[in-house]
Every structure is written in structure tokens, then in C-alpha cells.
Design a protein around this nucleic acid. Structure first.
Lengths: 220, 220
DNA sequence: AATAAATTTTAGTTTAAGCTAAAAACAAAC
DNA sequence: GTTTGTTTTTAGCTTAAACTAAAATTTATT
């Protein structure tokens, strides 16, 4: 059984890998809120355990074994998030934190039972893909709303931010996964975007838009 | 936030206090599966934190503050057990272990939500009382079936053992909380007991009976 | 290319929780 | 009421995961 700490580091590396090509110990230290030295130590330990590869002064990558563990943790996390929402009525801004604590402590049986309760779901409340038991990840759009084109219709896929405040803000605009909307206007130079969501006009900043992933909708 | 370890010790002391009047560090060490020295160390730390009182070479008692914490943990544990059974279909022999892991990691919100889901329940799947939010404990019979009298009707209140094997055995006899049965015969000298449960005759040992708590039923 | 700045690693400490072995205190037996 | 045996505590060691400060390496600047 891996320590909670080890699991947290693996998950952090996994998440950093999704974005940045190379993950430095410093990136990791920041994400984990520990000193750079602590991150280095853990990375060396992970390498020792063959869960990561580390080239000094360069960066870290998860090995296949490490990735497998990361996917299990992410699966736990996202299943829990959805379960908290669907079964216990949590709002989407609160599920992350609770799942964060629980993800390390549920058994395989628990995982299976909530998975069955939820009908083997593909996405969590924020639209993030839930890795399947065997490590397959449902496809997701990698198109940020910030790169979308005026005058097109889109469907919200995913909000890639977990801060409660941000989620409440976005939710207040009606922008939940699977919601359809139209991008009416988009100012140049990272300016604001105007959307029509369910008949209402909403203006959001470029920064916000960059965290929303969408796919083109066949306009109705 | 108390460490998991501290919480586990507090809970162990609480449970030992329920039975034995005085709790020695050795009792505690056995219950916790640690060396006597480790138990002594922790007890001193708890005393330091004003969660327990310790008189050297004598024993430990929880303070009011310590008891309050114990009750919270026990509440978490028993609510979880019932939730796992009611909401997720766990059998009663498996709920203990899962709850044991989760009890330290659920938030107050989680506690409240499962409590509401369960309708503010009083007893867990084994008939153990669930302390209320404010620390009140539902009444329970302290009469063991081992001390019961021939020819009377009883209702199962509680099974005071958490080992899966034992619970499966007892469950196989049909002896769940709230089940009514009649004590047909009872051999002297800690001999076996004969019961009629739902029309069927069952013979159980004294040792088993001593772990079953019952109350007299007004015979129908 | 040489030096300055930033990043990463190494070295050595700290804390929590465990351990063993030895010492101290208590209980029991003669 | 000593002596013997058990229980409890003390002392000192180990491991995991953090830390700071110093050394090493890489990157950036002139």
C-alpha cells in the first residue's frame, strides 16, 4: 500500500504532465505546496520504486506503472465527485475537496459499488473524463473557448478549474457541462467574450474562457 | 486537526472504557496492535493535550474533551456503516472495515448528508447505538443472551463483534437486530443454548451468546 | 564566453509514530 | 516482608516526510 503522500505526488505529476510537456521538480513543489527539496526527495523515491523516471536537473515523467496508479487515483477522485453530487446532493463547487480527502481511502468494492450506482459514468460534474477500470480515458475536446470562433454554437464540455469560487461564478452564468450556447462576439487581444446562454447574454473574460473547454455544436 | 493515529487511540480507549472500568496502557497496546511502549507514549501525549488523564502505572481515562472526540469518531463510524449497507448494498459483515478507513476522512457536511439520507438513525447495522450530533447515546440493553432465561422471548438488539466471519455465522442463524426469537433451552455451566428463530431451531455456544445483546419481548 | 541569476540537488535537522531493550514500579508468592 | 514475576515506563533507535541552508548545475545576460 502506497502512502497518501506518494499517491498525492503521483497524481500531481500526472496532472502536470497533461499540460506541460516536461515536469520539473519545481512545478511539482509548487503544486504540492512543499519545498523544492522535498519534491526532489520524493521524485528520487518514486524513481527508486520505478514509478517515475528522473533525470537530474531535467524533470520527471511517470513510468507505465506510475501512470497506472495515477489513473486509479483520478478514477477514484472523479467517481467520488460524481457520486457526491448525484447521490448526496453536493453542489459542483464542493465535490472536489471532499473527494480529495476520500480518494485515498476507498476500497475496490466501494469503487465498484458507486460506479454501478452511477451507471459506469464517463464524466465527472466538471466534465472531466473518468478513466475506466482498465485505464481507458473517454475522449474530450481540447478546444478552449478562448480559441473559439464568433458566431458559432458550442456545447460546454469541461471546466478545468476546481476552485469553489470560480465554479460558483461559472455556474452562475449557467455554464455547466452539456449546456449549449452561442459565441456572439469575441474581442481581440484577449478581450472579453459575449455569449448567449439559454437566451441570456453573458460577458466573460478571456482568462475565464481559457478554462472552459467546448465542442462545436451542429447549430440547431 | 488530529492525526489519524491520535483519533484511533482515542477511539480505542473509549471502547475499552465501555467494558473494563480501568484501562491500562497494556490493554490499549493490545487493542491497537502496538508495543506497550508505543501506547505509553501516545497516552502521555494525549494527557499533554488534555484529552486523557494518565496516572503512571495505573491507567488512562478520557477527559470530557477526549470523550467528545471519541463520540464524534464513533458517530462517523456507525453512520458510515449504516450508509454503506442502506445506500450501497454492503452486507453487514463488510461495513466495519470500510467504515474504519473512511471515518477519519469525512467532513461535517458529509456526515450531515448521510445522516439526513438515513433519517437521523439511532442504530447501526449491528445494533450499536449511533451517538447523536450533541453526544447523546441511544439507550441499549446491556443484557447478554448468555444471561437470559429459558422459555422467554427476546428481541435481538446488538451483536458486539465485528469480525466478518463471526457476523456471517450469526447472520446465517437469522440473528439480526430486531429479530424476535425464543430461548428454548439453556444448558448449565456455559453450555449451548437452543433457540427458535422464525420457526427454526438453532443451537449456539455460550461464547457466541455472550456477544449477543437482547431485550425481553412481551410474548405475542 | 564569462559572469550573474535562477533552478535543482545535497546535506543535515525536525517531527510523529513506531520499535527494542533496560530500568522502574507494582503485584503475587513464599 | 523479601523475593520473584509481571506490567509499565524510560531511553535510545528507525523511518517517512517535511524543512532550511549550502552546493551544484543550468539558463540568461551582457
Amino acid at each position: 500500500m502506497l502512502s497518501q503522500s506518494i499517491e498525492d505526488y503521483i497524481k500531481a505529476i500526472y496532472k502536470l504532465q497533461e499540460h506541460n510537456t516536461s515536469v520539473t521538480t519545481n512545478d511539482l513543489a509548487k503544486k504540492m505546496n512543499v519545498s523544492a527539496a522535498s519534491a526532489t526527495n520524493m521524485v528520487k523515491k518514486l524513481a527508486e520504486m520505478n514509478l517515475a523516471e528522473h533525470t537530474s536537473y531535467k524533470g520527471v515523467t511517470l513510468t507505465e506503472a506510475g501512470t497506472k496508479i495515477a489513473l486509479e487515483i483520478v478514477r477514484h477522485h472523479r467517481l467520488l465527485e460524481l457520486y457526491l453530487q448525484q447521490a448526496l446532493g453536493y453542489t459542483w463547487d464542493k465535490v472536489h475537496e471532499e473527494a480529495e480527502h476520500l480518494e485515498h481511502h476507498i476500497s475496490e468494492e466501494f469503487e465498484d459499488r458507486i460506479n454501478d450506482f452511477l451507471g459506469n459514468p464517463q464524466y465527472d460534474p466538471h466534465g472531466a473524463p473518468i478513466p475506466s477500470r482498465d485505464g481507458t480515458i473517454p475522449t474530450i475536446s481540447k478546444d478552449s473557448l478562448a480559441d473559439a470562433d464568433e458566431d458559432n454554437e458550442y456545447i460546454m464540455q469541461r471546466v478545468e478549474e476546481e476552485s469553489p469560487d470560480f465554479l460558483r461564478y461559472v455556474g452562475g452564468l449557467g455554464l455547466f457541462p452539456n449546456v449549449r450556447f452561442k459565441l456572439i462576439a469575441k474581442e481581440p487581444f484577449k478581450g472579453p467574450l459575449t455569449l448567449r446562454v439559454d437566451g441570456d447574454m453573458k460577458i466573460i473574460g478571456h482568462e475565464t474562457a481559457s478554462k472552459l473547454y467546448v465542442y462545436r455544436s451542429e447549430s440547431a
